[in-house]
């Protein structure tokens, strides 16, 4: 059974986006994505204050054999990053939807996230890829 949380939305490039209800959104990568990458060894996070655009890369996750860009699903400004990942990238492997969150964005247009997939849509995407 799927354990994809239904309280958030998903990008086709395997990021999740959670509306915090105050105009800000938390971003991370999905459990499926961390599984594909394998044991993560490094996470590069954006700097606080960086302006990000939906669909543009703003972070990197690295495993031993791969490196993958992380795209912001919304446009806005980075207001927080998960500094606990520095030195503990495995947190994403262990808890991608929770403690493995990556950064928070104050969205320029809160409605932008509506075009992303819901949990069922994302599960269908994953099923199709496999």
């Amino acid at each position: 059974m799927s354990n994809t949380p239904t309280d958030r939305r998903y990008a086709k490039s395997h990021e999740w986006l959670k509306d915090e209800g105050d105009g800000s959104f938390t971003v991370g990568i999905t459990d499926h994505a961390q599984g594909l990458l394998g044991d993560l060894v490094f996470v590069e996070l954006p700097e606080i204050g960086t302006a990000v655009e939906a669909g543009n890369d703003c972070a990197v996750v690295e495993s031993v054999k791969a490196a993958s860009d992380v795209y912001s699903p919304v446009t806005g400004e980075v207001i927080a990053v998960n500094e606990a990942l520095d030195g503990a990238p495995e947190t994403i492997n262990e808890d991608a939807f929770g403690k493995g969150w990556m950064f928070k964005v104050k969205a320029a247009d809160a409605g932008e996230s509506d075009s992303l997939l819901d949990a069922a849509g994302y599960d269908a995407l994953v099923a199709e890829e496999e």
């Binding site: 060894v41 031993v64 990238p89």
Partner: peptide, 12 residues
């Protein structure tokens, strides 16, 4: 001389 190496440890 060695068996498979722990690449993850080498990087972390």
């Amino acid at each position: 001389p060695v068996r498979r190496l722990d690449d993850v440890r080498a990087a972390r």
